[in-house]
Design a protein around this nucleic acid. Structure first.
Lengths: 117, 117
DNA sequence: CCGGATCCTTACTGATACTG
DNA sequence: CAGTATCAGTAAGGATCCGG
């Protein structure tokens, strides 16, 4: 994430890099709720393919956000959880949720003011 | 953003929809600092093409986050700013920045503990 | 069950040229 | 100045098949 000279860019850019990815915030959100196995995570995030889910998890792992715990059993079992650093991302998701809530209540008001024909 | 039946999904999903886009959070961040003309915004966000910047701005406009103000002058002048709702996204960016800061300080510590040869 | 390998389709960039 | 149009090249995501 640092430049070649070892310096860093604007903190916002660094933070954005970490969660930059179509499904990453959603993944983080689900892992904040609970540690998840791969298949469970896949079910909880409708629309994502297994392949992409894998690659995004790998990238989150590289960023030190997600921890991968593989049990060498048959059948295999892999648990994903957040690192200590990953748990620090909770406020981001919390704020996103608040905005979502506000957007919803806003839309409901407009719907009430302009009732369907 | 609502389903056909008028209901909404999980607030986090709704919030993510609004800022889902490679450059949208960065655009919002820049507009939080100041109202910007198109060219200025383009300069402040290195890496984005004019075409994509335009489309992302249009989408943010549809989401009620960004306001477009065109002056019918010669030469033309277009100012982009955040709506009242858009300004409510500030806490999201604030938290992203905090995470970025923490990540940077973390990396610096590791660099100090493991000095370059 | 987890996920790598492959192929394919979009999305995005960069450059350039053109319009109001 | 603020876009739109086009083209070529790259990157990101999706679909499918295969293997431990």
């Amino acid at each position: 994430m640092p430049y070649q000279d070892g310096t860093f860019g604007c903190p916002v850019d660094v933070g954005l890099q970490l969660i930059n990815g179509k499904w990453k915030p959603k993944i983080i959100y689900e892992l904040l709720q609970q540690t998840c196995r791969f298949g469970e995570l896949h079910r909880r995030i409708p629309g994502v393919s297994r392949h992409v889910l894998t690659t995004q998890l790998r990238e989150l792992e590289e960023g030190g956000i997600v921890q991968r715990n593989a049990f060498l059993t048959v059948p295999p079992k892999v648990e994903y959880s957040l690192t200590e650093f990953g748990q620090r991302l909770e406020p981001i998701l919390e704020q996103i949720m608040k905005v979502g809530e506000h957007y919803i209540s806003q839309q409901k008001q407009e719907a009430a003011a302009d009732p369907p024909s």
